[in-house]
Design a protein around this nucleic acid. Structure first.
Lengths: 131, 131
DNA sequence: ATTTGACCTTACAGTGACTGTAACCCTTAC
DNA sequence: GTAAGGGTTACAGTCACTGTAAGGTCAAAT
């Protein structure tokens, strides 16, 4: 299986797969006689693992560590859970921060007439002395 | 007022202020006899404006455009509102995506024993054939 | 047989919004 | 005089890719 097909299967781009190999997130793919990368089911599974971890918002480096843990029969689930909880906390923080932004944005957007006049509560919010 | 004091006042870092000047987000600061940047109330107001826009999640380039609009008496609030609404939509999309991540993470974290055993539903979720 | 188009390869630059580091100059206090 | 703590520039690094260039390979159509 060539890289484009692997990309299609995993939902990654060919460039991203090459990038993961370069960054040693996954072991280097075997090459055909023509020098093309070849992917088998095992390699695909690694790529899918990374894809799913990334889709859950784990950093590439965390995704890599999780992959190593998944391949290590001596692992303890405590280590994995700790990473996941840490990440979950970060995600929750991000959500709360974005919700604060949204609340403020919704507030000022609701006040702005959005017509040809210059008067604008959105800009007032950004420049005003009264927050 | 030197750059460190301006940084303290605005909540930006000195490096960030220099970066904004370099990127022409704000006009270059006047310099003292020693070549140090000098900040007055007007410059500080520009910096605070950018800081607030960034805190609401606007990109630096959008923040710049909003600053120009705020200084333009010929502006129409419609243009500002459009930008804000667009941004609000992006923020809402981000929130929804993060909430999906959170729900999945909470689900698997709740299933994981987090002890010395290798068995781990978190890793199962990432590698498993059944999502 | 050739050409076209789609694939593959590497290498390097660019993205966004900074942050870190190095090397140097200036000011202030002791 | 010297040491700490400012300031200056310039350049590299971050993260996770994406874009671009320049070229090699393959399969099918002409």
């Amino acid at each position: 299986m060539n890289i484009a097909e692997a990309a299609k299967y995993t939902g990654l781009s060919s460039k991203t797969i090459r990038y993961y190999e370069q960054e040693k997130i996954i072991p280097p793919a075997k090459r055909g006689d023509n020098g093309y990368r070849q992917y088998d089911a095992d390699q695909l599974a690694l790529l899918v693992f990374i894809k799913r971890a990334r889709d859950l918002g784990f950093s590439l480096s965390d995704s890599h560590e999780l992959l190593l843990l998944s391949l290590d029969p001596e692992r303890s689930s405590a280590v994995v859970k700790q990473k996941a909880v840490q990440h979950l906390n970060k995600v929750n923080d991000q959500i709360m921060q974005l919700q604060k932004m949204r609340d403020i944005l919704e507030g000022v957007v609701g006040l702005c007439s959005g017509d040809s006049r210059a008067e604008c509560p959105i800009l007032d919010k950004l420049s005003g002395a009264s927050q």
